[in-house]
Design a binder for these strands. Structure first.
Length: 398
RNA sequence: GGGUCGGUGGCAGAGUGGUCAAAUGCACCAGACUGUAAAUCUGGCGACUUACGUCUACGGGGGUUCAAAUCCCUCCCGGCCCA
């Protein structure tokens, strides 16, 4: 009778999960039928959420689907301080303005994954900004400098002679205190958050609360094989257009297909395993597995219709090399120099760059390679397709 | 507060008077090969110029010199050690 629920609890505790503290305790509570308060904090450090954030967000959704209360915490105070967990270098302090700007779209973006209407959305500046030295001192009392400098990334920086400033030490205190204020039963976060997540467990008992359980999710690798990070431009953003999402997925390397399917979608694990085995013995072409992944992601972030449209577009344009039908138009004047047009349309960074692209054979008009850097555009080329590199097309219109 | 080392292109990091628009790696762009894969290979990667070439750049400002990323002064910022 409870088989289905047991399976879902098991998946909740394992899929994309690196570690649970304390697993048995949390399992019992999940089985008890109590409604748990499950917290996830996201700092508004960049204007876009990327699919790395989907891992904990999907985990949050799993909790939500089991009937628990989820709390989405927007770190408008912590975002200003800046977390160092995933950084090799000191993180600059953001201005309140920058944070506010980034924050604006966050909740809507997260709403693509979780049911915002059923969630509690909170902003930690509301309580953190009110703390004075006395309170902060009290929180700081719970931690030692030693624990902090033993953290792997801090230690590395210290060893490398890089600066670690005192403000950074404050971050875990703040995150831990968030859990106190919110009376969190569970906190979800990436494995790189370990120290911060545990801070809640340290602080809560000091305020007469039971320590929260912690669910640490796997980190995913960026589209270029390095850690996914906004500053490296190897992300797929929740705000990306359906076309971009599809295209970016198709350009990842094969090894990432299974991790992405596991962590960024809710394709049943049985299917994921089938795909994994299928690719191993070559019954399934990696390209097709990738298309499945791309469609799943587009469906999650947009909708199923877009997913089908983009699949067709992709096959037409790239597999078959056909020039797409719905090309952006580009108005030009008669006799305008090609290099100027390229710069104006944002297809080249500068005239020098435009010339280079022509010299290297990267520019085509109506499928004919342009070789002359002095090329100008004339009326005969009305409605021709200008192609820059592999994937940029513009229809020339006079 | 004292001592000492350092601040170079998107990042990391060479370069210590001319041959430096600045090695090398990463990122990025174009081409080849492909499954728009990845990996690999080739070319490129400040701006302007068809081109010869010109201009702007090595933390900020000032100076020495025919000539400065390189030397001097000063200011700002940081590391380390000592207190």
């Amino acid at each position: 009778m409870h088989h289905d629920r047991d399976k879902r609890i098991e998946e909740l505790l394992t899929r994309s999960v690196d570690e649970v503290i304390e697993r048995n305790h949390l399992k019992k509570r999940l089985e008890s039928g109590d409604v748990l308060r499950v917290k996830l904090g996201i700092d508004p450090t960049s204007p876009h959420l990327h699919i790395g954030r989907m891992v904990p967000l999907l985990k949050l959704r799993d909790f939500q689907k089991l009937g628990h209360k989820i709390i989405l915490l927007v770190g408008n105070a912590t975002g200003v301080i800046g977390d160092t967990s995933d950084k090799d270098a000191e993180r600059p302090m953001l201005s309140h303005e920058a944070v506010a700007e980034n924050m604006r779209q966050y909740v809507a973006q997260a709403g693509k994954i979780i049911d915002i209407a059923q969630a509690e959305v909170v902003y930690n500046a509301e309580w953190l900004d009110k703390l004075g030295f006395k309170e902060i001192g009290g929180l700081a009392d719970a931690f030692s400098v030693h624990e902090f400098i033993q953290r792997d990334n801090i230690k590395r920086r210290l060893d490398a002679g890089k600066r670690v400033n005192l403000r950074e030490v404050l971050y875990p205190l703040m995150q831990g205190y968030d859990s106190v204020v919110l009376r969190a039963d569970v906190e979800v976060g990436g494995t790189d958050q370990r120290f911060n997540l545990l801070a809640g467990r340290t602080l809560q008992p000091r305020f007469g609360q039971a320590p929260q359980d912690v669910v640490m999710t796997e980190l995913i690798i960026g589209t270029d094989g390095r850690k996914m990070s906004s500053s490296w431009g190897n992300t797929i953003n929740l705000t990306d257009s359906a076309r971009d999402v599809f295209g970016k997925v198709m350009s990842i390397s094969d090894e990432l297909i299974v991790p992405y399917l596991t962590h960024c979608t809710r394709v049943p694990m049985a299917d994921v395993h089938t795909i994994e085995r299928g690719m191993a013995d070559e019954r399934i072409h990696p390209r097709d597995a990738k298309i499945r992944l791309a469609k799943e992601l587009v469906t999650l972030l947009h909708d199923a219709t877009s997913a089908n449209i983009e699949e067709r577009y992709f096959i037409e344009t790239f597999s078959k090399g056909v020039i797409p039908k719905d090309v952006e138009t580009l108005a030009v004047t008669d006799g305008e120099a090609l290099v100027d047009v390229l710069v104006r349309a944002g297809l080249a960074k500068s005239k020098s760059d435009a010339r280079r692209k022509i010299q290297q054979g990267g520019i085509k008009i109506s499928d004919e390679k342009i070789t002359d850097v002095m090329q100008t555009l004339t009326k005969e080329q009305n409605n021709s397709i200008l192609r820059v590199g592999k994937k940029n097309f513009r229809k020339i219109v006079f």
